[in-house]
Computed example of a mutant assay.
Amino acid sequence: MSLGKFVIPNPFGPFEEPRFTAYLIKNWFEGKTPSCATPAYIRDNIPVSLLAKAYVPFVAGLPENPGFTRINPIGYAESQGDFALRVAREMRPRLNLPCEVELKKQTAFPEPYVRINTDILDADALGWDESAAWDAMAEYYLRGRSA
Rank of each mutant, 00 (worst) to 15 (best):
A138I: 03
S35L: 13
G13E: 02
R86T: 14
L3S: 11
L95H: 06
L121M: 14
T69Q: 14
P14T: 12
E102V: 13
G13C: 02
E130K: 12
E64D: 03
V87N: 08
L62D: 02
D135H: 08
P93Q: 08
R143Y: 09
Y140V: 02
L97W: 07
R92P: 00
P63C: 11
A88G: 09
Y41K: 05
N117L: 04
V48C: 04
I74D: 05
S131W: 09
A132D: 09
A52P: 00
R43A: 08
Y141A: 00
Y41D: 03
S49T: 13
L62A: 06
L3K: 12
P34A: 08
P9S: 14
R86D: 04
G144W: 01
R86H: 11
E64W: 02
A88F: 09
D44Q: 08
E111M: 12
P98R: 03
G31W: 07
L142G: 05
Q80F: 07
K105Y: 06
A138K: 06
V114W: 07
N117W: 09
Q106W: 12
A54N: 04
K53I: 08
L51I: 09
C36A: 15
E64Q: 02
E78D: 12
V59W: 07
C36V: 15
A60S: 13
L85F: 06
R115S: 15
R115T: 13
I25D: 00
E16D: 06
I46Y: 08
P14Y: 04
L126V: 10
A108G: 03
L126R: 10
P63N: 13
P9D: 06
T69N: 07
L24V: 10
P98E: 01
A84N: 06
G144N: 05
V87D: 08
F15T: 09
R94P: 01
A108T: 14
F6Q: 02
K53D: 06
A54F: 10
L97C: 03
V114H: 10
Y76N: 05
C36F: 12
G31V: 03
S146K: 13
C36W: 12
